[in-house]
Design a protein around this nucleic acid. Structure first.
Lengths: 198, 198
DNA sequence: TTGATTTCTTGCCATTTGGCAAGGGCCGGA
DNA sequence: TCCGGCCCTTGCCAAATGGCAAGAAATCAA
């Protein structure tokens, strides 16, 4: 129940003191999600800024054929949010869904704006988060453009090994931009390579 | 020389009045770029928020093999900016280069922050720009993940036909995530399809 | 203008990835 | 316990894309 991780998150950019972080964190309410529960449905307007303590949230959109495409995977310590819907008050193009039971902290748009108004240092933090998210997307984009599927898989394994264990292969596949059978083959090849290396 | 386009840009989100937009635009200085001139070099910290009136700016990074990869293309009416470097005051991972002679308006980080401080409506505008940029990246990411190269090419043709005419094929190719010979073939196939349709 | 450079196209073939379908294993509910 | 439904793997072949290199075409600079 403690807001430890949330407070630490606010301090992570070095833009505020421990006391400030604790004050801001006090404005957040505890929030649970059951496995398979939706945090946000496509078409709705997001009104919940959700920081994830533990568990995994998946974001997905539908392609032209109506197939789900995983666009984001969030684990503990991250904010699971459809940024454009939340900040622009527009219908979300994606659904956010709990892949496992989740615990975290949330705050509404009005409350967040109140904090932004009252606390310039938190405003700075918010901007820096947006910028960080932008960099992450850029990095993923570059990877999709220039790396082979095998390299992208390996990069994800390095960056977030826990996701590979806990997220069903079909979701990982569309997140990486490959089909599930291709990913299965990649995984087999990687395992073979690792075995030979030992 | 008129700041018309800049003023219109500020008003485009509906977050401020004409008078406010004109006031803010007055803080920007005219800025020219000669063809092939760098607006920002990789490794440097960006200190110029640059709005493009006319011309084309290309952003590129280097891949592991030292090859240039085009990560962004900006035409008139857009802001050509490496967001993370400018806002986080960190070395830029990319170079921004004028593909043609360019005219526009620019402002420094300190000046921009001054405006953000003095004018809450401009702060809102800045946030909404970041969010918009994020959505654009998400859309490109989704396209790379699920669409074929032919579809991506067609989408770019629909969205920004002027780029296809004025940007060398090799830059378009890496922007679209294909090799230049593949793009050349795609273009040939598209032309053939169009001819048959007529 | 003229020569040099860049840009674009195209052929040939290799590699990567997709599509489809069958089958095995695992897990949860009745 | 047993059944039904995911989840994952794998074989076969097709389609998409890349790599390389040669040459034509356009562009640039002197």
């Amino acid at each position: 129940m403690a807001r430890q991780q949330l407070i630490q998150f606010f301090q992570s950019t070095g833009l505020m003191s421990a006391a400030q972080a604790a004050d801001i964190a006090a404005g957040f309410a505890p929030r649970q999600l059951a496995r398979h529960e939706d945090l946000l449905r496509a078409g709705r307007i997001s009104d919940e800024y959700f920081f994830l303590d533990s568990g995994i949230v998946r974001a997905f959109a539908l392609d032209a054929a109506g197939q789900e495409v995983t666009t984001g995977l969030y684990a503990g310590g991250q904010v699971a949010l459809e940024v454009s819907s939340f900040f622009n008050r527009t219908p979300s193009p994606e659904t956010l869904q709990a892949l496992t039971d989740c615990q975290g902290w949330s705050i509404t748009y009005a409350q967040l704006n109140g904090l932004f108004h009252a606390r310039p240092e938190f405003r700075e933090f918010g901007r820096s988060l947006l910028v960080r998210e932008l960099m992450r997307l850029k990095t993923r984009l570059l990877g999709l453009a220039i790396d082979s599927a095998a390299v992208r898989y390996e990069a994800l394994r390095q960056a977030s090994p826990e996701l590979l264990q806990r997220v069903p292969l079909k979701y990982l596949a569309s997140y990486l931009g490959v089909t599930d059978s291709s990913l299965s083959r990649l995984r087999a090849a990687a395992a073979k390579g690792a075995a030979e290396a030992s």
